[in-house]
């Protein structure tokens, strides 16, 4: 049956229709002028760019609808450049479309596969040449070469070893120790419990030994958020409750998911939200994760006051702060 079915036939390339510019000299002239105007506009754009660069003051602003109050120099240089480039493109394309030959042409493709004879010849040649190396007959060479090539890539890898030190116990520790005073960030002054009202928060960092400069690496593991709640709002086990002071609770600010600073505290719901991936922690339940991808609560810092009435850490963090890593021991949570 299939032999009887007639399918539609390819009618072949449609007949070429002449453009106006091909037949009407006036239209051709018009097209030429259009292209010329576009190229002229480009020249104007370049002059404008240079003029704006030299003469427009960098501190002048102008209100333009949609853009708002905009820096004039930046806009002028940019729009000059836009005009200078865009019109070259428009001109060239218009030229090609209207004035260059527009008869579609056909080029034959060749099949990529070579003739069977050529392929046979090649196959034989390749086989012969491989045979000539004797690699198949000399397994010792084959295996040792494999070994050598397999290993040679290791050298550059090993040479990269000194890119950085070994992590050691760095990720397990912070600068908080028993008695470290809590210092306000960025003021770097100690803080007393009375300084915080119920519903108040403070961003704090540990007091570093005199003469030590605080680096970003310190902040990256030491940042702590202090929050004061009504003591009756807590829902903590006795140990964790003893880590708070008069309703003040302290958490590592470094998210246990991916290390962003978690500090969006909602004082009515007592939720802490991480703005990166929306992990939500319940402050009243020792920063238990109640939503989002974080798997562990924010580490709580035990705090108390020293003889001078300043807030201090009672002990270091009992668990590593921040995101997980392979060596992280979860024995304390």
């Amino acid at each position: 049956m299939s032999t009887q079915i007639e399918r539609f036939e390819d009618p072949g390339l449609p007949e070429h229709l002449h453009r106006k510019a091909d037949t009407d000299p006036k239209a051709a002239k018009r097209a030429e002028q259009q292209v010329a105007i576009l190229f002229l506009l480009s020249a104007v754009g370049t002059v404008g760019t240079i003029a704006s660069y030299i003469w427009v003051h960098p501190q002048v602003y102008l209100y333009i609808p949609i853009l708002g109050s905009t820096n004039v120099q930046q806009a002028c240089i940019g729009l000059g450049l836009t005009l200078a480039t865009l019109t070259i493109g428009l001109g060239a394309i218009q030229w090609a479309k209207k004035l260059m030959p527009d008869v579609e042409q056909v080029q034959e493709r060749h099949e990529f596969r070579s003739s069977d004879k050529d392929r046979d010849d090649l196959t034989k040649t390749v086989e012969n040449r491989v045979e000539e190396t004797g690699i198949a007959r000399r397994p010792l060479i084959k295996r040792t070469l494999g070994l050598a090539l397999g290993l040679v890539g290791l050298s550059p890898l090993v040479l990269l070893r000194d890119l950085g030190p070994m992590p050691g116990k760095y990720l397990d520790t912070t600068d908080w120790t028993a008695g470290t005073r809590l210092m306000l960030d960025p003021a770097n002054t100690p803080i007393r419990p009375e300084d915080l009202e119920v519903g108040a928060v403070a961003q704090v960092l540990p007091e570093l030994p005199a003469g030590t400069e605080r680096t970003l690496e310190n902040i990256g593991k030491d940042a702590v958020l202090l929050i004061r709640l009504r003591p009756e709002d807590f829902n903590l086990d006795p140990e964790r409750l003893s880590w708070t002071y008069n309703g003040i609770i302290a958490f590592s600010k470094i998210c246990t998911h991916m290390g962003c600073a978690v500090a969006l505290y909602e004082q009515q719901t007592h939720h802490l939200l991480c703005p990166c991936h929306q992990s939500t922690f319940d402050v009243t339940r020792a920063a238990k994760v109640i939503f989002g991808p974080a798997a562990r609560p924010l580490p709580q810092l035990a705090i108390t006051v020293d003889a001078n009435g300043y807030l201090v850490a009672k002990q270091p963090f009992t668990v590593p702060i921040g995101p997980s890593f392979w060596e992280r021991n979860s024995k304390n949570g």
Binding site: A187, D195, L196, G199, V201, I227, Y265, Q268, T269
Partner: peptide, 18 residues
């Protein structure tokens, strides 16, 4: 005052000048 969800920032943690 810390309205609604917003926590309070007391004058001790952020001084009036700040």
């Amino acid at each position: 005052t810390g309205p609604q969800s917003m926590p309070k920032f007391t004058d001790a943690t952020i001084t009036p000048q700040e």
